[in-house]
Measured scan of single mutants.
Amino acid sequence: TGEEYIAVGDFTAQQVGDLTFKKGEILLAIEKKPDGWWIAKDAKGNEGLVPRTYLEPYS
């Protein structure tokens, strides 16, 4: 299990392996990579890379 984050903006996948999401979606951070791209999972179970700058902790 990971930590929940809320998307603060829309993001469209730029390449294969990225995860597209919309502002307000809750994402589960699976792995926090030091380069600023995290592996996350959305509510539908889709998994991919997301930019850290689009996420804020969800409580």
Rank of each mutant, 00 (worst) to 15 (best):
Tyr54Cys: 14
Pro57Ser: 07
Gln14Gly: 09
Lys23Cys: 11
Gly45Met: 04
Glu3Tyr: 11
Tyr58Thr: 08
Glu25Lys: 02
Thr12Arg: 09
Gly48Cys: 04
Val16Ser: 11
Pro34Ile: 10
Lys22Leu: 08
Leu28Gln: 09
Lys23Gln: 08
Ile30Trp: 05
Gly36Leu: 05
Glu4Arg: 15
Val50Gly: 02
Ala29Gly: 04
Asn46Asp: 08
Trp38Ile: 07
Leu19Phe: 03
Glu31Ile: 12
Gln15His: 13
Gly9Asp: 14
Glu25Ile: 04
Lys32Leu: 07
Tyr58Ser: 07
Thr12Val: 11
Val16Asp: 13
Ala43Arg: 12
Glu4Leu: 15
Thr12Trp: 11
Leu19Cys: 03
Ala13Glu: 04
Val16Asn: 10
Ala40Phe: 08
Tyr58Lys: 08
Glu3Lys: 10
Pro34Thr: 11
Ile39Pro: 00
Ile30Pro: 00
Leu27Pro: 00
Gly2Asp: 10
Trp38Pro: 00
Pro57Phe: 08
Gly48Ile: 03
Glu47Asn: 07
Gly2Lys: 12
Gly17Asp: 05
Gly24Ala: 03
Thr12Gly: 06
Ile6Asp: 00
Phe21Thr: 01
Ile6Arg: 09
Glu31Cys: 14
Asp35Trp: 05
Asp42Gln: 02
Asp18His: 15
Glu31Lys: 12
Gly24Leu: 03
Pro57Arg: 09
Leu19Met: 06
Leu27Gln: 00
Thr53Ser: 15
Leu28Thr: 12
Ala43Gln: 12
Tyr54Trp: 09
Thr12Ile: 12
Ile39Arg: 12
Val16Ala: 13
Ile39His: 09
Asp35Gly: 14
Lys44Ile: 09
Asp35Asn: 13
Thr12Glu: 11
Val16Gln: 12
Ala43Thr: 12
Lys22Asp: 03
Lys41Gly: 03
Glu25Val: 06
Glu4Asn: 09
Glu56Gly: 05
Glu47Lys: 12
Leu27Met: 07
Gly2Ala: 12
Glu56Cys: 14
Lys23Glu: 06
Lys44Cys: 14
Gly45Cys: 06
Tyr5Gly: 00
Lys22Trp: 08
Ala13Cys: 07
Trp38Tyr: 06
Gly17Leu: 04
Leu49Ser: 10
Pro34His: 10
Leu28Arg: 10
Glu4His: 14
Leu49Ile: 09
Asn46Phe: 08
Gly2Leu: 14
Lys44Val: 09
Lys33Asp: 06
Ala40Ser: 03
Ala40Met: 15
Gly36Met: 06
Asp35Glu: 07
Phe21Arg: 00
Pro34Asp: 13
Val16Lys: 13
Tyr54Pro: 01
Thr53Trp: 15
Ala7Lys: 01
Leu27Ser: 00
Gly17Gln: 06
Ser59Trp: 12
Pro57Lys: 11
Pro34Lys: 10
Ala13Arg: 08
Val8Phe: 04
Val16Cys: 12
Leu28Pro: 00
Phe21Tyr: 02
Arg52Gln: 13
Asp35Thr: 08
Ala7Val: 04
Ala40Val: 15
Trp37Gly: 03
Thr12Gln: 11
Tyr5Leu: 04
Ala13Gly: 12
Asp42Met: 02
Thr12Asn: 11
Pro57Leu: 11
Ala7Tyr: 02
Val8Ala: 06
Asp18Leu: 14
Ala7Leu: 03
Trp37Gln: 06
Leu27Lys: 00
Glu47Thr: 15
Tyr54Gly: 04
Gly45Thr: 01
Gly48His: 02
Pro51Ala: 06
Tyr58Met: 09
Glu25Thr: 08
Thr1Gln: 13
Phe11Trp: 14
Glu47Ile: 15
Leu28Trp: 14
Lys41Leu: 09
Tyr5Asp: 00
Leu49Gly: 07
Thr12Ala: 09
Lys22Val: 08
Asp35Phe: 06
Gly36Glu: 05
Glu31Thr: 11
Trp38Arg: 00
Leu55Thr: 01
Trp38Lys: 00
Lys44Leu: 13
Gln14Trp: 11
Asp10Arg: 03
Gly9Ile: 14
Glu4Val: 15
Tyr5Glu: 00
Glu56Arg: 12
Asp10Cys: 09
Ala7Pro: 01
Ala43Gly: 09
Gly17Ile: 04
Trp37Cys: 08
Gly48Leu: 02
Thr20Lys: 04
Lys32Ala: 06
Arg52Phe: 13
Leu55Met: 06
Arg52Leu: 10
Glu31Gly: 08
Leu28Val: 14
Glu3Trp: 13
Lys23Arg: 11
Phe21Leu: 05
Gln15Glu: 10
Ser59Phe: 13
Leu49Trp: 13
Ser59Met: 12
Glu4Ala: 14
Trp38Gly: 01
Pro51Tyr: 13
Gln14Tyr: 09
Lys22Gly: 06
Ser59Thr: 13
Gly9Lys: 15
Lys32Val: 07
Pro51Leu: 10
Ala13His: 03
Pro57Gln: 08
Gly17Tyr: 06
Phe21Met: 05
Thr20Pro: 09
Trp38His: 01
Val16Thr: 11
Ile26Phe: 06
Asp18Pro: 03
Tyr58Arg: 08
Ala29Leu: 15
Asp10Pro: 05
Lys44Met: 13
Glu56Trp: 10
Gly17Phe: 06
Ala13Phe: 03
Leu27Arg: 00
Lys41Phe: 05
Ala43Lys: 12
Glu56Pro: 01
Lys32Pro: 05
Leu27Gly: 00
Glu47Trp: 12
Gly9Val: 13
Pro57Asp: 05
Pro51Asp: 12
Ile30Met: 09
Ser59Gly: 11
Thr20Phe: 04
Phe21Asn: 00
Ala43Glu: 09
Asn46Cys: 08
Glu3Ser: 11
Trp37Ser: 05
Glu4Ser: 13
Gly45Ile: 00
Asp18Ile: 14
Ser59Arg: 12
Pro51Glu: 07
Gly45His: 04
Glu56Ala: 13
Val50Ala: 08
Gln14Asn: 10
Lys22Arg: 12
Asp18Glu: 15
Lys41Asp: 00
Gly2Tyr: 15
Arg52Thr: 09
Asp18Lys: 12
Phe21Lys: 00
Lys23Asp: 03
Gly9Trp: 15
Val8Ile: 15
Trp38Gln: 01
Ala29Val: 15
Glu56Met: 14
Val16Leu: 11
Lys44Glu: 11
Lys22Thr: 08
Leu49Asn: 10
Gly36Arg: 03
Asn46Val: 09
Arg52Gly: 14
Thr1Tyr: 13
Lys32Trp: 06
Pro34Trp: 09
Val8His: 05
Ile39Ala: 05
Ala7Phe: 02
Gly36Ser: 04
Thr1Cys: 15
Asp42Ile: 02
Lys33Arg: 15
Ile6Tyr: 07
Leu27Tyr: 02
Thr20Trp: 04
Phe11Val: 05
Glu4Trp: 15
Ser59Ala: 12
Lys23Ala: 09
